[in-house]
Amino acid sequence: MSIFADENTKVIYQGLTGSQGRYYGLLNREYGTQVVAGTNPKKAGTDVEGIPIYATVAEAKEATGATASCIFIPAPFVKAAVMEAAEAGLELVVVITEGVPAHDEAYFFNKVKQDFPGTRILGPNCPGLISPGKTNIGITAGHIAKPGGPVGIVSRSGTLTYQALYELQQKDIGVTTCVGIGGDPVPGTSFIDCLEAFEADPETKAVMMIGEIGGSAEEEAAEFIKNNMTKPVAGYIAGVTAPPGKKMGHAGAIVSGGKGTAAAKIEALEAAGALMGENPTEAGELMAKIVAELA
């Protein structure tokens, strides 16, 4: 099984008529994702390579029975796009766009949680999710992931997510679902949400978790692992040697006031029983060991 999305998930691409949306929307369709519609109020009635464009998410959902959307809308319009998807009753809203203001994220996270509790937001500023062999919603290169299981992946960083998928593929290890939660201050889906879903998924037998400096999401995940996870976890934290006060690319990746350091995160995760690698390759090797022992 996979978490959050599978081969039956019908997806609307908000921003399918833009260059990024079109490029990745078509790549995702090629992979096997059910890309059933796009939205653009000015281009309703047209199509992108056979994918119909509707004026609104509600109309697209009505016409296609879609339950998910993938957002490639420019940052200034993301808040409205997320609310439109939630109001239309979608269950999963994947926000690829980077550069969304933190206050917008804080607003739509809380608004959706309160008024549309059935909607899950993933991102913003994330690579999306891939259930290898079934569906790929976002910008991950599909062919670097081996379908099947037994590993689930959750990561805060894009390229390190790809690196993790690739390391496992090289070791002939399959993945149930790989979720990129994104590097922004208010991610719609947290490490814990993913760990909980992987723990409940019978096909996922072990979880690989990739974090980075900043915030306390990894420490909270460690607490969850300690108290709620029966499945083994291997992981890696980027930014061990990052100087305090310097933002390392991601809006969330900053060590401030001695908090959010890699050392603290690694210590918390190790105390929770996770095996932590010093680099992505070592984390992949640790996961290979875990998988070998599962058999």
Partner: peptide, 12 residues
């Protein structure tokens, strides 16, 4: 490096 995570990892 390409990507913030990989760049951080490279520095490490």
């Amino acid at each position: 490096a390409n990507g913030a995570g990989l760049a951080m990892s490279t520095v490490d």
